[in-house]
Design a protein around this nucleic acid. Structure first.
Length: 422
DNA sequence: TCTGGGGTCCTAGGACCC
DNA sequence: TCTGGGGTCCTAGGACCC
């Protein structure tokens, strides 16, 4: 029997979080906004056509994508001019000083910081930079898990240099490689698992690194509010507070069985583990989507009868968008559902599972139309959504179909399902 | 001047089956 | 007069995350 080498690597998991990602990408295009309060969000309907306005006012200058950095500040839209229902996606650190933060309504932010510049979201641009920084990471450390556009987990354990200084050396290398290529900064936390790494990446923002080991649990993690745990949201926080549990340390002191009685077997046990820094989830490099959906909040609330035509057109468009998404990504799905939100913000969903998976807009619209018949349409609506779930790869479905020698599903045509949502 | 859009996962009840 | 025990699938809602 051979002894384990005494150099057996410690599990080292990194969480990397881009600093104010959307806003930072915008600052690369518009460096003249550096240091100013800038807010990204609001979405749709942005009279953003700064270039055409500039060409009118300053025709002596050749305005193009190449001199965006010369656009005078006066030409940037101010948040105070905004009217609509959007929320904020990101704010620069200068804007955060005013108490503006993500998920806040734009209108509320306008009150807090009326001089802030409001830029619309530009997902294509963010996706582009997202792919770039992720490609840089995987060149250095191939085991990377996507957590959305601006976050990843990375398994440092077996990467050369990943153990040095607890991961600090590799974290610094990755930070530098990303900055050299994109000009963007990020914050990294390295810890024995994802849970702690996620918390650690927040310790030194922006452009920071923090290293956490098992021994740091009591000193660094236990004093934090429970809400800092990824998985404890506003509801759980409030319920914990009713039991006089405010910090992770206070949570850790509670009896496991008692937590399971109060919060349910599964969540209670998880709370107990989390408070003790336990988490054995691995870094997953691949994942298959479970559902694909599209939804939209209307500019004004709509009524099913009085705004029937508008609603019907929106409904059709959502179905077409979902179908296009499915086709582009190569999926079919057999659970078709709708979601709507009433003017009082209450949401309801209905869904229906078909015999066969589909990806055609007309078929989706037909099934979703059936779902729509099962909800109360007397209240005014503020949101409508269409979802396709129980997904499978189109190629798998086709292969399975051939094997079963089933008759091919009849082609769906618009004329077959011309009926609308009532 | 309230409160986006895209997801995942969990729970819980009922249907249905063996 | 008293009524099993799994298992899986479907549906609705809700918590949470980025």
């Amino acid at each position: 029997m051979t002894a384990l080498p005494d150099t057996a690597p410690h599990r080292r998991i990194a969480h990397l979080d881009m600093d104010a990602f959307y806003a930072s990408v915008e600052l690369l295009r518009y460096p003249q906004l550096k240091g100013l309060p800038v807010v990204i969000g609001g979405g749709r309907r942005r009279e953003d056509d700064m270039l055409s306005r500039l060409r009118e006012v300053h025709p002596e200058h050749e305005w193009s994508e190449h001199n965006l950095h010369e656009i005078p500040l006066a030409f940037f839209p101010r948040i105070a001019a905004y009217t609509g229902r959007g929320v904020i996606t990101t704010a620069t650190y200068a804007a955060r000083q005013f108490g503006v933060g993500s998920a806040m309504g734009v209108m509320k932010a306008a009150k807090l910081c009326p001089d802030a510049i409001l830029l619309p979201v530009d997902f294509d641009q963010y996706r582009h930079y997202s792919q770039r920084f992720k490609a840089i990471i995987t060149e250095i450390a191939p085991l990377m898990e996507n957590r959305g556009v601006d976050e990843v987990y990375i398994d440092f354990t077996d990467v050369p240099g990943g153990q040095r200084e607890g991961g600090r050396v590799l974290a610094r290398l990755i930070q530098k490689a990303i900055f050299d290529d994109t000009g963007l900064t990020c914050s990294v936390g390295v810890a024995p698992n994802k849970l702690l790494a996620k918390m650690a990446s927040e310790f030194n923002k922006p452009n920071g690194i923090s290293i956490v080991t098992e021994n740091d649990l009591q000193s660094l993690v236990w004093p934090l509010p429970c809400r800092k745990v990824n998985g404890i949201g506003p509801k759980a926080e409030a319920k914990l507070a009713t039991h006089d549990i405010h910090t992770i340390g206070e949570l850790a002191q509670r009896d496991r069985v008692w937590l399971m009685q109060q919060f349910g077997k599964s969540y209670g046990a998880w709370l107990h583990d989390a408070a003790h820094g336990k988490d054995d989830r691995s870094v997953e490099t691949e994942s298959e989507p479970v559902s694909i959906s599209r939804e939209t909040t209307f500019e004004q609330d709509l009524h099913a009868v009085r705004n029937r035509e508008a609603l019907s057109a929106i409904f059709t468009r959502l179905c077409e968008q979902v179908a296009a998404d499915l086709q582009r990504k190569g999926y079919v799905g057999k659970t078709i559902g709708i979601k709507l939100r009433y003017d009082n913000f209450q949401s309801v969903t209905r869904d229906q599972t078909l015999d066969h998976p589909i990806n055609q807009s007309a078929a989706i619209r037909h099934a979703a139309g059936q779902c729509l018949k099962r909800v109360d349409l007397k209240r005014r609506l503020r949101l409508l959504g269409v979802r396709v779930g129980s997904l499978m790869k189109l190629e798998d479905w086709q292969a399975q179909n051939l094997r079963a020698e089933e008759a091919p599903t009849p082609p769906f045509t618009e004329s077959l399902f011309g009926d609308d949502y009532t």
